[in-house]
Amino acid sequence: MLESRGLPTVVVALIRLHAEKICPPRALAVAFQLGRPLGEPDDAAFQTRVLTAALGLLERTDGPVILADHAEEAPGRLDDPSWSPPPHAADPAAGPFAGAFAREVAELGPAWQAHRLRSGRTTIGLLPGGPATWPRFLAAFEAGDVPASPAPPMPPVLALKFFADDLRAFYGEAALGAGARPSSRQVDEWYWRGTAAGALVNACRRACLANADKSLHPIAENLLVPAPFRV
């Protein structure tokens, strides 16, 4: 669409099959995790090799459809056997989970702050209010209510999705702490199966799906919990 408007383009293709179907003018197929188009975090040389390969396609003249493969794999997708989750109390076996979640957020605060200090950034903050605002909002959903939206006119259930994304980011950053490098599989396993937060988001999902208000259902069904971790 941009090339037809006169702008030369090159795409980093995470799903080669899609590039084969769409036939963009220039695509570099990479065998990286979805969500990591440059492949390896914190590895400038690795990322530069990806960019050099992709942008290099702009100098080729054998179009109009060029699909090249980048052979290098990203080692960071593999588990780090030395990693262990930051300390927190065991999550309760049965709900309600909101109280345990509030304590857990407080317990993980130091690990999250360590990441923030080391990296100089955080990725949370999709909605107004920080971690202190999450427990009450999610507790209402867990109890089967629909609280007021923190960001009207955004519907409360969409705010629930963004809060769920924010708290997943908080836990992901706490898992990194002062420089750990767990795989995303390790963090997902811990978050969804080993924390009160994962249990609480699942409980909110179930409560929304049980609510007579069917407008809650599409987001609850598809956008709160990845399929392997739904309970």
Binding site: Q33, G35, L38
Partner: peptide
Amino acid sequence: YDRGGFQRDLDTV
């Protein structure tokens, strides 16, 4: 999809 790379290093994305 993974957001851990984004959380660690913006340049990953």
